[in-house]
């Protein structure tokens, strides 16, 4: 073989790997993105984030898929329940792509993540933003999700008013009505007055617990206080002043603890009633959401508490 031909052949062989390394293969980007998507579908979110980041780094010219990658990274964090990172990623997305068609979705994700972090005011302002600026369906979702935030905050009246603002043509209208009807019944829920419970416990230890449907606790409180008061009286009567003072000191702990416990029991009772009511509402709302478009149907729901 002649020398120039050998050199040419060598140069050609050396250049072959350079072609791939330069990323000239038009199918490489597709494969890279498809790989990231497959990891996302497999719920391997941590690796999917890396692959989406790799795609955005290697193919910055592919604007549409870079935008999708950035959005998906936020979704990955959200689905992996990394709320803080999800909020930060979606915030960057909103900053980077202010004209994106996914802007409302990003704001909704941010709001949901903030709600999970129990940062209710931040969540509410994000849902409000969607309710003001989004498409019709996103507006309804913003209103609905905002109402759920108010529910988490304990503002039932505010939540009810907001649920009623969900548009009539929205698929969320039916669960919103379930919530608003249920929340209206709040005033009919049985309640225990903490002040009454505390006063009763102060007058007769144990009676406060009896008022809050805790007969076992009532018996314990009554026997403990009764025994210590009796012991203190007997000791003072027998002239054992020091021993009587010591027992009285302990009795003061039991007595004040009994009042505190009765008041706390009333609060716990009210909380439990509200939570149970809310749990039923959530289940009903979920069922109505899964239901068809107003078609009458027979449904069964099974509930297994554990």
């Amino acid at each position: 073989m002649s020398r120039p031909l050998t050199i040419l052949l060598l140069l050609f062989l050396v250049c072959i790997p350079c072609r791939d390394a330069a990323g000239q293969d038009p199918g490489e980007g597709d494969r890279q993105f498809a790989f990231a998507e497959s990891l996302f579908l497999e719920k391997d979110y941590f690796r999917a984030i890396t692959e989406y980041k790799r795609f955005a780094f290697l193919y910055p010219g592919d604007a549409a898929r870079v935008e999708t990658s950035r959005f998906r990274i936020g979704e990955c964090y959200f689905l992996a329940e990394r709320w803080e990172e999800a909020v930060e990623t979606f915030r960057q997305f909103v900053r980077e792509f202010p004209q994106s068609s996914r802007l409302d979705e990003a704001l909704l994700y941010m709001g949901e993540a903030e709600k999970k972090r129990k940062r209710y005011d931040e969540a509410l302002s994000l849902f409000d933003a969607v309710a003001e600026r989004g498409t019709q369906e996103h507006r309804n979702r913003g209103v609905y999700e905002g109402a759920l935030v108010l529910l988490e905050k304990g503002d039932w009246q505010g939540a009810r008013e907001r649920f009623l603002r969900v548009g009539e043509d929205s698929p969320l209208r039916r669960p919103a009505l379930v919530y608003s009807d249920g929340l209206e019944k709040e005033k009919d829920l049985p309640r225990k007055d903490p002040a009454v419970a505390g006063t009763l416990a102060a007058i007769l230890p144990g009676s406060g617990h009896l008022y809050t449907d805790r007969p076992k606790d009532a018996l314990v409180a009554f026997l403990l206080n009764g025994a210590f008061i009796w012991a203190a009286v007997e000791l003072f009567d027998d002239g054992n002043t020091v021993a009587g003072a010591v027992v009285t000191f302990f009795e003061l702990g039991w007595y004040t603890g009994n009042i505190y416990s009765a008041v706390s029991s009333a609060h716990k009772y009210n909380r439990r009633i509200r939570e149970d009511h809310l749990k039923i509402l959530r289940e009903q709302a979920l069922l109505s959401r899964r239901d068809g478009h107003g078609t009458p149907s027979l449904r069964f729901a099974f509930n297994i508490p554990f």
Partner: peptide
Amino acid sequence: GIMMTADRLIHEPTEMAY
């Protein structure tokens, strides 16, 4: 702290149900 300790000892029987 003392009041809450007494409360804990009193409410133990019913709290186990919830």
